[in-house]
Each structure stands twice: as C-alpha cells, then as structure tokens.
Amino acid sequence: MSEFFAMDGYAIFLWPAYLVTLIAILANVMLARRAHAEAKQEARRRFAIEDEGSSP
C-alpha cells in the first residue's frame, strides 16, 4: 500500500497533480450550482418586489 502511494519516487509530483485536478472538478460543480441557485434567488426577489408594487 505504501509502495502505491510512493509511486516509485514520483509521489511529490503525481499526487499534487491529481489533487489540483480534483479541486478543479469539485470547484466547477460548486460554482455552477451556486450560479444557478443565485440566479433563481435573484429572479424570485425581483418578482416579489414586482408583486408588492402592483398590489394596492
């Protein structure tokens, strides 16, 4: 097992490369979902203000 993680001496290059890629994959999932959630919230807020303005 430790032999696997040592990657024959390449560990200090290999694992950071995998880590950076993993971070990018997860970050883009998070950023995309947040952008969508924020856009929905923003639209809801706008409609709420509109509705308030139109009611007597």
């Binding site: 995309a32 979902r33 952008a35 969508h36 856009a39 929905k40 639209a43 409609f47």
Partner: peptide, 22 residues
C-alpha cells in the same frame, strides 16, 4: 448545462416564463 440555465435566468430577467419555472 447548469451554467447555461443560470445565464438564461440572468438574461431573461423579466420574462413571464421564469415565474412559471420558479
């Protein structure tokens, strides 16, 4: 696709169909 949905919501702003989907 997720980013596109966010972008469309931001661009359409006042469109009435957004009311329906929300």
């Amino acid at each position: 696709l997720v980013r596109l949905r966010a972008e469309i919501l931001r661009r359409e702003r006042t469109a009435s169909w957004i009311r329906e989907v929300l």
